[in-house]
Structures are given as C-alpha cells and as structure tokens.
Design a protein around this nucleic acid. Structure first.
Lengths: 193, 193
DNA sequence: CGCGGGTTTGATGATGCTCAAGCCCGGTGG
DNA sequence: CCACCGGGCTTGAGCATCATCAAACCCGCG
C-alpha cells in the first residue's frame, strides 16, 4: 500500500528514501477510504488532511449563491488532494472536496507534514509539486481567460485525457467553466470534422 | 537598494539573514532597470531571470492568434516577476513580460538561485512564496469560472486595490478576462448604487 | 418495468464582444 | 497661447457566444 507512495516520491526526487524515512512516512500517513460522493472536506470547515490518492477519483469545487457547483480541481491516482490555504492557515475553507469514485487514500495531518518536511527527499518532492501545481494553475487560468470553450476542451483532452474517461461530461463542463449543454454541443461540432 | 529586499525576506521567514547571507545575496542579484514598455521576457525566449521589483510596475501576458493581449499577472513593488515554467525547465516561454512603468529591479539567474536556496532563510521565503502564489492563482481561477464580470471586479478591488490605481482600465479589463468596454459599463453600474 | 443519472436537442434570452464614433485630457510643438 | 495628437475612456448598435429552461432520450440496474 505504501509502496505506491514511496515510488511516487522517489520519482520526484534525486535521492532515494532510506528505510528510516519510509518508517516515518508510514507512521505519518494513515490509510483512509471514501465512498462515492462522501465528503473529504466540507465548505466552512478547516481542511485537516492532505490526501494521497492510491485508487479512485476526487473533486474539489465551490458552490455559488445559486447553488451551482464549480469544479476547481479533479484528481486521480497518485495525485495529492487538499485545500492548501485552509490546511496551512487553518482557516475555514470555501471549497468542498469529495470522492467521485470509491477512493482509497493515505492522509496526512498538518502537524505531521512539518515533521516529514525534515526529510530532504520529501521536502524536494513537495517543492517540485508546489512548483508544478502553480504552473498548471497559471496555465489553466490563461486558458480560461484567453481561449473560447471549444479550445479549452481541446486543451483538456491533450493535457489530462484521463479526466475525460473517468468523469462524466457535466463534471468536465464545470471544470471548463461552461454548461453541460454547451459542452455537449461542442463535442458534436468536433466530431463533424 | 538591497535593504528593501532584505527586509522583504526577513518578513517572510522566522530566522533573520546573517551578514554572510546578505553578502551572497548581493553577489547573486544584480540591479537592472526597464523603461516603460520595455520587454523583460519575449514570447519564444527562455526566461533567464527572476526579477524582484524595487520600484515600478510590470505585466505578464499572452498574445492570442487574433493579436489580443491577455494579462496573466500584474506586479508592483516587492513582487517577484518570472515565468516559472520557462525559468525552471529552460523551455521557450509562451508569455511576454514587460514594464508598465519605468522599473528598477534586482535580477537573479537560475543557476544563482540554486546557490541561494542553500540558505534556509531564503529557502523558507521561496517556499512560502510558492504556496501563496499557488493559492492566489487558484482563487483567481475560481473567480474566473464561478463569478460574473461585475463580481470579479469587486473581488479585484478588495484584493489588490493598488492595481486599480496603477494600471489603466484596459489593462485591468484584460486581467479580469473581459473587454475594456464591458469594464467601463460595469463601473458605471457600480456608481449608480 | 420503472427509476435515476447522464446526455442531447431545441427555443429563448442574457451576457459580454466587436466595431465605430466621439470625448476627455495632458503633453508637444508651432 | 493654441492646435493637434495620442492614449485612454465612454457610449451605442448589432451580433456571437453561451446559459437557461424544458423536454426527450438513453441505458444500466434493482
């Protein structure tokens, strides 16, 4: 179960984990599981855990005043899921996080994270993860202000083809910031070509 | 000149910079200046520097196939400006970065950054900066898919009131992902209330 | 067989864009 | 001192994109 995490970490870092590192990781990250639609984080609560997805699919989303969901982030196996702001600042979150499929996780409390960051290999992994999260977020932002619906969809297919397989279209639509009807029509037009 | 940077760093970290740290910083970050509209990074080039703004105002933007500019990021005094992806991966950038006002900077090459990161205080500062960059970017993304034009403008006024003072409206409009005409009309409606 | 979740299709309308014109204002040069 | 110019802002008309609402369809499952 932990091997999946270890090999993930080793892939992101120059120096491999020592057995002692692995032992510390095992005591810090605890197994958890979520049924489909079960909440991992509820709007208004403080995000207690960072989750590493072993198996399954999750969503992070906000709910606006009209009750519409807006998908901020989707995540599959070997992704980290957390509301960083709430987790780090211990402030109430404006987002919900839930499971879209039955999901197996390893979860990490904020205090334990601090201990883990003593391990250089771990620190390096999180460092790189932060970098790439920011870069990805900035790209998506650029797409969302610079590209029309159709091209945003094209981009998504190129960048995260798995999402299309694993999430229904109305989720994908929300992730792209368009309505499910518009996405449906966009897909029709694509096929015509 | 460097004092401004030192006090910025000290504000972001628990432990203060030592005189040796400061000496290393001085040899790593070099003064530079840009005239209004002068490019700091040109689309297609590799981003060579991270810039710390001592005085002035900068923009980072993409240009779409129709020739329209889309503002990805605005920055004022005590902000860092860089295309992280290009800078770190040494890949050609899809963005332009230029000065909107005459600007004084301290610039840092990627290799020198690695040396600086040996200093724990510096590492901690960049760590926190990465975190908050990501959080800010995610918030802005959420706004851009969840909120209509008017509310996005309200958010901007709350979050970065300085931007409104320092940048003309057509820049603000582009930052919000709307046309300058729409922003103009939005502002009219606001005043009516 | 009926139900629930998901997708499609059509009609209608809001939001925001484009294009074009005019205005305002602070230079700059005659 | 005035004319003109450029950059920025505003306003209006027409239009494209996309959202909303409603209905129908599809299909896997109890």
């Amino acid at each position: 179960m932990y091997d999946q995490l270890f090999s993930y970490i080793n892939r992101y870092s120059e120096t491999l984990l020592t057995p002692e590192d692995e032992a510390l990781i095992k005591t810090s990250l605890k197994p958890a599981s979520l049924k489909k639609k079960e909440l991992f984080l509820k709007q208004g609560n403080i995000c207690q855990f960072t989750g590493f997805i072993l198996k399954g699919a999750m969503r992070q989303y906000s709910v606006d005043s009209a009750g519409n969901e807006h998908i901020i982030q989707l995540a599959l196996e070997n992704w980290w899921m957390v509301d960083r702001e709430s987790y780090l600042m211990k402030t109430p979150s404006v987002y919900n996080i839930d499971a879209w499929e039955d999901t197996e996780l390893l979860v990490l409390e904020a205090d334990d994270l601090q201990r883990l960051l003593e391990i250089p290999t771990i620190k390096e992994m999180f460092w790189k993860m932060n970098q790439s999260s920011f870069i990805a977020s900035q790209k998506r932002l650029n797409n969302s202000i610079a590209l029309p619906a159709m091209e945003r969809y094209e981009e998504l297919i190129k960048t995260y083809p798995d999402f299309i397989q694993r999430f229904p279209q109305h989720i994908i639509a929300s992730y792209l910031g368009i309505s499910k009807e518009t996405l449906s029509r966009v897909r029709n037009k694509r096929i015509q070509k």
